[in-house]
Design a protein around this nucleic acid. Sequence first.
DNA 1: CGCGAGGAGTTACAACTTCTAACGAACGCA
DNA 2: TGCGTTCGTTAGAAGTTGTAACTCCTCGCG
Lengths: 217, 217
Amino acid sequence: MAKSDAATPRERYRAQVRAEIKQHAWEQIATAGASALSLNAIAKRMGVSGPALYRYFAGRDELITELIRDAYRSLADAVHAAAVTGADPAALAHVLRDWALADPHRYFLIYGTPVPGYHAPDEITGISQEIMADLLTAWTAFEPDVPASPFAAHLADHRDWAGDHPAPPGVLRRALAFWTRLHGVLSLELAGHFTGMGFDPALLFRAELDGLVGREG
Amino acid sequence: MAKSDAATPRERYRAQVRAEIKQHAWEQIATAGASALSLNAIAKRMGVSGPALYRYFAGRDELITELIRDAYRSLADAVHAAAVTGADPAALAHVLRDWALADPHRYFLIYGTPVPGYHAPDEITGISQEIMADLLTAWTAFEPDVPASPFAAHLADHRDWAGDHPAPPGVLRRALAFWTRLHGVLSLELAGHFTGMGFDPALLFRAELDGLVGREG
DNA sequence: CGCGAGGAGTTACAACTTCTAACGAACGCA
DNA sequence: TGCGTTCGTTAGAAGTTGTAACTCCTCGCG
């Protein structure tokens, strides 16, 4: 909502229509999932005829790519907003969970089954690294002296993903476990694999989190 | 391959054609993913015309449901085959990983983004419980006296998913963590979220597994 | 202020998809 | 040797994505 006054009226109009298309796309995804996203349906809802949308997006793939980018951006912003207030890992975990529960389809757009031909552009790996950086910073502040393990040593030797963040090996390991373990619980919960199992997914999430921050889970 | 000699020649033929359809479906899924599965393409490959397949499957959804069921069955069989030889949790973990790596799309068919309208039939939840039972048995044999935690107590009170398996609370907790943590690593690896990060996913998997079986990861 | 260029939206169409309906032919059981 | 079930076919409806060609409006420049 910042650089909307680009230059020419045409560009402003174009940006506005693109945003409107994306909004309708999100509504459609939120109700029926990404696989059910239909350009025709969006056009019909906007009171415009099918091929008109091709002025704004080269095709379904480009629209989805844009939505994935926006989803990453939204998650990175949510995490960063909490991180700048000095949130500890536990707080970040709940930011992540709240963000995921707010729109499961959006979470799956990022972390779900990959789209067959799609390959993430560099911009997205950049956003992904932003999230990682906030995670590493929070973990460094929370517990800088994690005892190193053999795998932590391996991470210290292969830290491309950490950019130039000065987190020690043990913290790298913690941040990675934070990501994979919480994703494990979240994705199974959102996919409905816990329904009918009886226990409370929120408590499982909390237990895994407690295990990560030191308390026994 | 057991009860193929059902009764009438027609039934045998029917079962054979259904199997052939599913085999082509698997090949198609393995190369392009489940979302790209096309009945028409299968028909063309079989040298038969489109609507002919509808004699064998009510529609795309029924075919996919059947494939999901087969995938579950395959995983349960793989786990069970290892379990009956007395495999410990670590061995089961590698069975799981090998099974997933052998055909990532098959793994995502089970644990990936849920299909919009699809709801798992009871048969599948049954197979899911078979897997859980083997897991619980392996964990019980490996480490029967896990110290209980608050969440383990919660699990002991909500053990619908464990059937009537006599695993103690601590083991329930371990088996659940086994599932969610390894899925966290596996799904991110298979979805390609580790590519370009530098470290070795196999080592991460091993590290998480080591954490579960007691050794420090 | 007026006019030309370019962008927006339109319809028409091609090539797909799933899936239904109606028909002929082949197969197996009695 | 029939006769009925089931198979596979073609035709077609209702979708989808995406291209091509055409009209019309609007913006910006002289």
